[in-house]
């Protein structure tokens, strides 16, 4: 037999159900956008870390006017191996015991006055790029004095023997 007892309880039950459904919807939609938000945050940290490491390498350890930074020296000598070791040591060091697992791929960009174009040569890499990496790009201008000679010429076709600014571009990703 149908009677009208307990209507308030029914309404309360419906209201509670709606509230729970809406709460569940909020939580589920929050977790679904958590992933892109999270990669932005780690991208930001990675970019800052890489820029700082490059700047450390590009800071001369002497105040003399002819003082050359490690990065200038490495670039001049085209010493990709040393670049890779130093950069990864800076980036992978943690306060804890174990090392982080960052990988790099570096290219150098310079201007060729003869062809009036910007050219590139591959400088160093610790892993081959497969295309699946989620890499960030960090760059540093390197001030090069190549008047005395052209040690890069083997690797960098057409690089001029003059004072110049070249751009070191590093792709950095966590493997």
């Amino acid at each position: 037999m149908v009677n009208s007892d307990g209507q308030l309880f029914t309404i309360e039950g419906v209201a509670a159900g709606l509230i729970m459904l809406f709460s569940a919807y909020l939580v589920v939609s929050a977790t679904s956008i958590y992933t892109p938000g999270d990669t932005h945050i780690s991208d930001m940290q990675l970019e800052q870390l890489g820029s700082d490491a490059l700047r450390m390498m590009n800071t001369p350890n002497t105040t003399a006017t002819a003082g050359e930074s490690l990065l200038q020296n490495i670039t001049k000598k085209n010493d990709g191996e040393r670049f890779k070791e130093t950069f990864l040591t800076f980036c992978n060091s943690t306060t804890g015991g174990s090392y982080d697992n960052l990988q790099l791929s570096a290219d150098l960009f310079y201007r060729d006055t003869l062809t009036k174009s910007v050219k590139q040569f591959h400088f160093a890499h610790s892993r081959n790029l497969t295309g699946g990496e989620h890499a960030v790009r960090v760059t540093e201008w390197v001030h090069l004095d190549l008047i005395g000679g052209d040690p890069l010429s083997g690797a960098a076709p057409g690089i001029d023997t003059r004072m110049q600014a070249v751009l070191m571009e590093v792709l950095l990703w966590r493997d």
Partner: peptide, 17 residues
């Protein structure tokens, strides 16, 4: 609390962007 969880990720994303 659900609203707070929902909004916190958006805050992190927009800040990082």
């Amino acid at each position: 609390l659900a609203i707070v969880v929902n909004q916190s990720t958006v805050v992190g994303q927009t800040t990082a962007e």
